[in-house]
Write a protein that binds this DNA or RNA. Structure first.
Length: 594
RNA sequence: GGCAUCGUAGUUCAAUGGAUAGAAUAGGAGUUUCCUAAACUCUAGAUGCAGGUUCGAUUCCUGCCGGAGCCA
């Protein structure tokens, strides 16, 4: 419809004023609620070229559109805004079409492959709130892209080696006494995290002691015996020392068990796992290629650099003088590895905004190296989750643990549900499933409704809401609709499209819901293009809100005509379906009853 | 110091350069013999400061102030 109108406006300007208006300038917007109409065209930009007053131009154009575009019944002009009113038959045909054929889905991704890399944890400590934002974002964007027709590969690059892992290992060797997750009664990732903390405590104690002996802080940090032991262990790991490798495998095994449990609980998964222990040596041959091609240059000390000053950046190290890798060396290698296997058109890295600079550099390098996939790289850079006191700091014990938080959310959901006492007929299994659904729904919605690019605040003192603009509000609306449809089934009054006459006088509340349903594919497409699940989250909230308004204002079953009843039941079905779909895009399940 | 980023009701979040800046929550007042009150209705409350571009700026540009970040 919007397209038809835009085309009509375009041809009007061409034929009456000999002006060619680019399509981009012909965007119609939805009419604000306080004005009469459905679609609005802004006249201001065209006043100069036509030498008309807004009133006159609006009248001419309005009359032309009413006469030439079927489906527009009338118009009005407020200041420079031309508001178009769509006819009942337009709305009714739309409803019937949606009901028989479904609401269309975007298709821009058909035939294209995209990789979404997300999660990418370190195996030295458990996941925290920031990781949850990452995981939910990655999973959600993958779902949204799938819905647009993309072939999506979800990847996870696990940082399973390096000095941080050795720290946990050293502390375990010193103080572990053969402890296991079973003997300690701890999830594996938490057990390993415990030793990481122990390392840090011992390390700081040693630094303090050395400083009291008169060493500077820098010296003390370098000379602390426990740190030297960790560095030594890293070397032994690299040479493949059997004992070290054995311990490493054991402890990483514990961590993976713990992570998998968390992943299962929060409902995320991966198609392809990468491990840094396999990939950390990659990229060195790329450096050689780059040197030959003149993309990189070598300094006297043998270190290899790229000069990006022409791009407004600076010089960046890509290989150390002793021939060891830096992060970006590995990333170059891994990028090749991924592309060789999947040949994807686009590659999305879900990584925090602290690495913005890193990814700008990586993309520049890959472009200069002439990699065919370089343009398809996109860094989905998201903001940190901050606490009222500022950034989460493990050292200060202010890290919000992912498992703890998820558990707390589920417990809260249970308490709230029991208070309301609406599910007495549920088995305990069904009830537990619902608590998980609601607790995770609240948490995921809380994290995803915010624009990913922005940093956001989490206050541990206040629990995540279950009322208002929240996941459970939307889940509730779904359950409410399900209840209505159950009743309709019982009464055998389920409608068919044939029950709706094309001239049915659409009620305003009905039209508002239908307008939002019509927006679903548009919003999905926009969310995919801007990599923002927040658009879907805010959309589905608006839909639920609008449905509840209608529910409150208009009776659905009974107390109305058969046509009204059929019309509203169809709206119920469509709304329920759309809520479910949209919520799945943000990784949230919805209940039939709550 | 350089680079990039953010600043909107008490608080947490919205707003392709468009109309009277939307929600939620906290505050105040209401709605249940009828489809789920985790809902609905009403009320009060905000664009850091100073310029500029524009018919029109929360949005674009410049400077300042303030917060968190990356690079040395």
């Amino acid at each position: 419809m919007e397209k038809k109108i835009a085309q009509a406006i375009q041809s009007y300007f061409t034929s009456h004023y000999q002006i060619t208006v680019p399509e981009a300038q012909l965007a119609l917007q939805e009419t604000k609620k306080e004005f009469e109409g459905d679609l609005t065209f802004v006249l201001f930009p065209f006043l100069k070229a036509t030498a008309k007053k807004p009133e006159d131009l609006g009248n001419e154009l309005g009359n032309y559109l009413v006469a030439n575009v079927p489906g527009i019944s009338s118009f009005n002009i407020v200041k420079g805004f031309l508001n178009l009113v769509l006819a009942n038959n337009y709305w009714n045909e739309l409803l019937k079409d949606f009901y028989t054929n479904g609401i269309p889905q975007p298709t821009q991704g058909q035939g294209k492959k995209v990789m979404v890399e997300y999660s990418s944890p370190n195996t030295n400590k458990p996941l925290h709130l920031g990781h949850l934002r990452n995981n939910f974002l990655g999973y959600s964007i993958a779902e949204i892209l799938k819905a647009c027709g993309y072939d999506v590969v979800k990847a996870n690059l696990v940082n399973d080696r390096g000095i941080h892992i050795c720290k946990s290992m050293i502390a375990y060797q010193k103080e572990g006494k053969g402890e296991t997750p079973q003997s300690a009664g701890l999830k594996g990732d938490h057990l390993v995290g415990k030793y990481y903390v122990l390392f840090d405590a011992a390390y700081r104690k040693e630094i303090k002691a050395l400083m009291e002996e008169g060493k500077t802080e820098d010296e003390a940090k370098k000379k602390a015996p426990i740190m030297l032991a960790a560095q030594d262990m890293l070397l032994r790991w690299e040479t493949g020392d059997p004992e070290t490798i054995k311990l490493w495998k054991t402890m990483n095994g514990w961590v993976y068990e713990g992570f998998n449990e968390t992943y299962t609980t929060i409902g995320v998964d991966f198609d392809k796992m990468y491990y840094e222990s396999d990939t950390y040596l990659l990229g060195k041959t790329t450096v050689e290629q780059g040197l030959k091609a003149g993309v990189f240059f070598k300094k006297e000390d043998g270190s290899v650099w790229i000069d990006l000053t022409a791009e407004g950046l600076d010089q960046k190290l890509v290989l150390r003088g002793d021939g060891t890798s830096v992060y970006i060396t590995q990333d170059m290698g891994t990028a090749d590895l991924k592309y060789d296997e999947f040949k994807m058109d686009r590659s999305i890295y879900v990584v925090g905004n602290e690495q913005d600079y890193h990814f700008v550099v990586l993309k520049h390098i890959l472009k200069k190296l002439g990699r065919p996939y370089a343009d398809g790289i996109y860094h989905l850079s998201y903001g940190m989750v901050d606490l009222p006191s500022g950034r989460m700091k493990s050292r200060e014990g202010t890290v919000v643990d992912a498992d703890d938080l998820v558990h707390e959310m589920i417990t809260t959901a249970e308490a709230r549900t029991r208070e309301l006492g609406k599910i007495e007929d549920f088995s305990s299994e069904e009830a537990n499933k619902l608590y998980r659904m609601l607790g995770l729904g609240a948490l995921k919605y809380f994290l995803l409704k915010v624009d990913p690019k922005k940093s956001m605040l989490f206050n541990p003192e206040e629990s995540v809401e279950f009322q208002g603009n929240t996941g459970p509000f939307i889940q509730y609306t779904h359950a409410r609709i399900a209840a209505i449809l159950r009743k309709a089934t019982q009464l055998k009054v389920l409608p068919s499209a044939a029950d709706i006459p094309v001239d049915y006088a659409v009620h305003e509340a009905e039209r508002n819901v239908l307008t939002l349903l019509k927006d679903f594919p548009v919003k999905t497409e926009e969310a995919a293009e801007t990599y923002s699940p927040a658009l879907v989250a805010n959309y589905v909230y608006a839909l639920a809100k609008e449905f509840n308004r209608m529910y409150n204002e208009l009776p659905i079953i009974g107390h109305n005509t058969a046509t009204e009843q059929a019309y509203r039941l169809i709206l119920c079905t469509l709304t329920k379906r759309t809520i479910r779909q949209a919520m799945l895009f943000v990784g949230i399940e919805v209940p039939e009853k709550m």
